[in-house]
Structure formats: structure tokens, C-alpha cells
Amino acid sequence: MLPIDRNSVRSELLKVITTLRDDWDYSGEITEQTGIFQDLGFESIDAVALGSAIEDHYNRSLPFAEFLMKANERNAKDVTIGELVTFVVDHLSRTGKKP
């Protein structure tokens, strides 16, 4: 099982993101403040695919649709890498609870 501390999750998440799109050529530094839409140029469907890729990576079902829906409801301008890390850490830490 992969470790679920914040640094490890951030590192795994960046690996997942860079393998998501074969035409992806973002070369800047990615920090917790980086936004996946405004900075990385994601389309909404890329975020959906990212959710699936995270689930595949950790072999766990995660409520990613609810995560994106709530971001949309609060009129978020973007979803940051830091928010994604928090989401993944929170849900991976909840043992035995399936969404």
C-alpha cells in the first residue's frame, strides 16, 4: 500500500498528472498553489480523468464527482494541487469507508 502522508501523496499525484495526457507539455514548477485549470490548462474532462487515474493509482473508489461538484458550487475559480492533495489524504485516511 502506498503511504498516505501529505508529501508522498503530492509526489504520487504529480506522477499521475504527468502521465494523464500524452500531449501535455507544461514545464513550469508545480506547487500546492498551482491551479489545474488556469495554470495547467486542464479542461473539465481532464479533471474527471484525473479522478479516475487517482482511483486507479490507489486502487480505491473516491468521491471525486462530489469534490468537483462542491468546488463548482462554491464558485471556485480553480482547483489547486493543494486541495487535491487534501482530498486524497482525507479519503485515503478513512479506513473501511467506501463512498
Binding site: 479542461e43 473539465s44 474532462i45 479533471a47 474527471v48 468521491p63 464527482a65 462530489e66 468537483l68 461538484m69 463548482n72
Partner: peptide, 16 residues
């Protein structure tokens, strides 16, 4: 559009 439409409109998470 795409699958994402059903995410941000709540339909996918609500119906599941």
C-alpha cells in the same frame, strides 16, 4: 460537452 457535465450538474453523484 463530456462526462464532466454530469459531475458539475450534480446529476452523476446524486443518482449514484
Amino acid at each position: 460537452a463530456s462526462i464532466a457535465f454530469w459531475y458539475i450538474t450534480k446529476v452523476f453523484p446524486a443518482l449514484t
